[in-house]
Amino acid sequence: MSNRSPFVDQVVAHLNRVTPVTARFMFGGYGLFVESVMIALIADDVLYFKVDDQNREDYIAAGSEPFTYHGKGKPIQMSYYRLPGEVFDNLEQLVQWVEAAQAAAARSKSKSKSKRKKSS
């Protein structure tokens, strides 16, 4: 029996129709992972997907908002945007948006690896 919210269980089950996804509790929410790469997060029962310069415009065009939290006295915006409900409900579209989030996460991960190598 899961201690997670029903929303998290529902999202994980639905995304598993597209690709194997696991959820890990982190910072009061959940990180969603595909092959150990975080592609999405859930905070306050809202699903956000990883974005970068190559897929951010799709979210903006759909009217989505970025994940923002308050830290150090000011709002901090992360590179995750709310997944539009109509995309979540359409498996064909969802596959494309999951793949784009995976690609954004992979690019982000490779950028952070190259930054660490440069600072060594």
Rank of each mutant, 00 (worst) to 15 (best):
V51R: 05
V51W: 04
D52I: 03
D53T: 09
Q54F: 14
N55H: 09
N55E: 10
R56P: 02
R56I: 07
R56F: 06
E57L: 10
D58S: 12
D58F: 09
D58A: 12
Y59R: 05
Y59H: 09
Y59I: 00
I60C: 02
I60F: 06
A61V: 06
A61H: 08
A61L: 11
A62S: 08
G63A: 12
G63Y: 11
G63F: 10
G63P: 12
S64E: 03
S64F: 01
S64M: 01
E65V: 08
E65Q: 15
E65D: 13
P66D: 07
P66A: 15
P66M: 05
F67Q: 08
F67D: 06
T68D: 06
T68C: 10
T68E: 14
T68A: 11
T68W: 04
T68R: 13
Y69A: 11
Y69G: 11
Y69K: 12
Y69C: 06
H70V: 08
H70I: 08
H70R: 13
G71Y: 08
G71F: 08
G71L: 07
G71E: 12
K72A: 09
K72V: 01
K72D: 07
K72C: 08
G73W: 05
K74Y: 01
P75L: 01
I76C: 07
I76L: 11
I76H: 12
Q77V: 14
Q77C: 08
Q77G: 00
Q77D: 10
Q77P: 00
M78R: 14
M78S: 15
S79R: 13
S79I: 00
Y80K: 03
Y80R: 04
Y81T: 02
Y81F: 13
Y81H: 07
R82H: 11
R82M: 13
L83T: 09
L83C: 10
L83W: 09
P84C: 01
P84K: 00
P84E: 01
P84A: 01
G85N: 14
G85E: 15
G85R: 12
E86I: 07
E86A: 13
V87E: 04
V87S: 04
V87R: 04
F88T: 02
F88N: 04
F88R: 05
D89F: 08
D89N: 15
D89W: 11
D89C: 10
D89P: 07
N90C: 12
N90I: 00
N90Y: 09
N90S: 15
L91V: 05
L91E: 14
E92N: 13
E92R: 12
E92L: 09
E92G: 10
Q93M: 14
Q93A: 14
L94K: 06
L94D: 07
V95L: 13
V95T: 11
Q96M: 11
Q96T: 11
Q96N: 13
Q96F: 05
Q96I: 00
W97V: 05
W97K: 03
W97N: 04
V98I: 12
V98S: 02
V98F: 06
V98C: 07
V98T: 07
E99T: 00
E99G: 12
E99F: 06
A100I: 02
A100M: 05
A100T: 00
A101D: 04
Q102H: 09
A103Q: 15
A104H: 09
A104C: 09
A105Y: 04
A105P: 05
A105N: 02
A105Q: 01
A106H: 09
A106N: 12
A106G: 00
A106F: 00
R107C: 00
S108W: 05
S108P: 00
